[in-house]
Simulated assay, not measured.
Amino acid sequence: MAKLNNRFWFRLHGWFSLPVWIIFCFVCLTGTISVISHELTWLTNPEARASNPQQVKEKPMSELVEIVQQAHPTASISTVMSFEPYLVNAVIFTDKDVPFAIAYVNQYTGDIQEINQGITFINFMRSLHGWLLFPWHSNYSVGYYIVCAMAIVMLGALITGLVVYKNFWRAFTQPKLRITQGKKTLLADLHRLAGVWSMWFLLLMSITGLWYLAQAMMWHNHIELEEHAPLIEVSQVPMSSNEAPTRPYTLSNALQVAEQQFPGFKSTYVMLPEHQRDTYKVYGQGDHIFYDQYAYGVTVNPWNGAIESERTPAKMTTLQTLSHIADPLHYGTIGGLWTKAIWFIFGIFLTGMSITGFLMWGGRTVKAAKADLDVTSSVNSHFVKQESH
């Protein structure tokens, strides 16, 4: 009975891991690359590097907007984003005959180092990993659901693998890697060792993946996690019959408001007003390492400088908190380069486990098929001999 139970769990482990191994392996691989996509961009694109030879302070985002506006007077600037200290800031704008462009502006020197009118490597890898580049239909993507469903596969493989691998904790104190006993034994040892040492990582990826799946369902059913930024009352907007009135409060004022509101605030994402009733949206990061770079923020009225809405971890609901801590845990950005390196290494382990698992399954399948063929041939030969007699 014990053998039967173990065989059941072993087969269940295989079913969780192998039927979708190509998608699972691809998601693991693209996720591993996404973890270091910023660093790969720095390595491969010199124009994306934010060199700071004079060791000066960063220029405020408002000054970067002015630099791009002077270089492109007819441009309509919508968004400014900052990433790592060693990468340039991105100023997103539209212009005549330019439906979408990103200006790579060095936040230390103020130089526009490149104008990118296509998709960036970072966005491409995140999109490929996040929803396999499937199209979005309003508020959902089939590809996003497929990727998120891999969390169920991962969690199932983790649980069944631990059931199958008896006394798995010995792999921590007595790791076994037999390299002289054939390919099958080596693959099995590699698979077990990587699985045991990656348990925490598998569990973390499963939990965050399940959250992304729940988030996708909420998006699909029009359940908003964050409230939309409020519109300014019509009575507060000055009326002019000739031309659009000038906003008395600038982006620089909005950034100052955010910095005064949150000590240690670092702006990472800024949106300029799109119309007269719109606000400055200033988001960034504070002193909580487990929250993403959009966890703090304010929307500022451009006509009177008042804060229309505020975002802070202390005022978040449970769902909002989960939304803002999932990405740092999933991509390993909580501790900078060090945690990214750890996440990258274990991402390689996870990708390797999917490959070794498939190779072991393939080897057993081929062996079983060959055995069945031999049995069938033997039976057919037996009947042929009987008929000849």
Rank of each mutant, 00 (worst) to 15 (best):
A2S: 10
L4E: 02
N5W: 01
N5I: 11
R11P: 00
H13L: 12
G14M: 13
L18M: 07
V27C: 11
G31L: 08
I33S: 01
V35E: 02
H38V: 06
L40V: 10
T41A: 09
A48L: 03
S51T: 14
N52E: 01
N52C: 09
T74A: 12
T74C: 00
S78M: 06
T79H: 04
S82N: 04
V88D: 01
N89Y: 04
N89I: 00
V91E: 04
V91T: 03
T94M: 09
V98P: 00
A103P: 08
N106A: 01
Q107K: 15
G118I: 06
I122R: 07
H129T: 02
G130C: 08
W131C: 01
H137Q: 14
H137L: 06
N139S: 07
A151V: 01
V153F: 13
T160D: 01
G161H: 10
V163D: 07
N167Y: 06
F168Y: 14
W169A: 14
R170M: 03
T173H: 03
L177D: 12
R178M: 06
I179P: 00
T180L: 12
K183T: 14
D189C: 15
S206D: 10
W211C: 15
A214W: 11
Q215R: 12
M218D: 08
L225S: 05
L231E: 12
V234T: 11
M239K: 13
M239H: 13
P245T: 07
P248A: 05
L255F: 03
Q256K: 15
K266W: 00
H275R: 15
H275M: 07
I289Q: 00
G297H: 04
P313L: 13
A314L: 04
T321W: 08
H324Q: 03
I325E: 02
P328R: 15
Y331E: 05
G332N: 02
L337E: 13
K340W: 07
F346H: 04
S354A: 13
A369C: 07
K385T: 09
